[in-house]
Amino acid sequence: MIPNSKILLAALCMLIHFGAFGQRKSLFNGKDLTGWTIHGTEKWYVENGELVCESGPDKQYGYLSTNETYKDFELTVHFKQEADGNSGVFIRSDIEGVKISGWQVEVAPPAHNTGGIYESYGRGWLIQPEPEKDKYLKVGEWNTMKIRAVGNEVTTWLNGKKMVHLSDEKIGAAKGFIALQIHDGGGIKVRWKDLTIKEL
């Protein structure tokens, strides 16, 4: 028979475990960039409770990464594209300077594979949505992107519609930060809000 103290300890451990991994938490406080790190010279700022990324004078790649790293999770973000809008959400990633290694879920203008998965400085496009799914993107309006990464499996949804599902051992072996991207070329502005994550 297990002593009461051991039962209580086991119960406490379970509560801690599920409390840490079963709760959804916000990645953006709506006030400032606490919990994030800027990479590059492009613009990242908060306006009206929204996180804004905008091309700077250098017109190069720029990234805003979480200070924490994540492995298995369900991430939800809301975005609205202004100007060109070419951006993306990196998962399980790492960076040196502005050279990022990891996997990007694309956020782009129409007909440019929003919701697809691209491996930066690696194999390139791993999977793209079927062309007919492009209709789910709301240009100039708020969109909801959900990304679920568990082991080798990554699934993306746009406005409640499944975009792609990928099984990949290289992704499965990785752990890293989440990052938002500004693509090079200039003329880019994307707004973000309600960035939340639930570890699985």
Results as ranks from 00 to 15, higher is better:
Glu47His: 13
Tyr63Thr: 00
Leu137Ile: 06
Thr196Ile: 07
Arg123Phe: 07
Tyr118Gln: 02
Tyr118Ile: 03
Ile38Asn: 02
Gly85Pro: 04
Thr155Trp: 04
Gln23Val: 15
Leu8Gln: 13
Lys146Asp: 05
Gly85Met: 08
Gln60Ala: 13
Leu75His: 01
Lys138Ile: 04
Gly116Thr: 05
Ile178Lys: 05
Lys25Ser: 15
Ile182Ser: 00
Glu42Ser: 03
Ile100Val: 11
Gly19Arg: 07
Ser5Cys: 08
Pro131Trp: 01
His112Leu: 13
Thr66Gly: 08
Leu126Asn: 03
Glu106Thr: 02
Phe90Arg: 03
Leu195Lys: 00
Lys170Ala: 14
Gly40Pro: 01
Lys198Phe: 03
Met14Ser: 13
Glu119Leu: 06
Pro129Tyr: 08
Gln23Glu: 09
Thr144Val: 13
Asp94Gly: 08
Thr76Asp: 13
Phe79Thr: 00
Lys175Met: 13
Ala83Ile: 12
Leu137Ala: 02
Gly124Ser: 09
Glu96Tyr: 05
Asp94Ser: 15
Lys31Arg: 15
Asn48Ile: 01
Leu9Ala: 12
Ala111Thr: 14
Thr34Ala: 15
Leu166Ser: 10
Glu74Cys: 07
Ile171Arg: 00
Lys6Trp: 12
Val46Tyr: 15
Asp94Cys: 08
Ser87Leu: 06
Pro3Met: 12
Asn143Trp: 04
Pro129Asn: 08
Leu27Trp: 04
Trp125Lys: 09
Trp44Leu: 01
Lys198Asn: 03
Lys99Gly: 04
Arg123Asn: 15
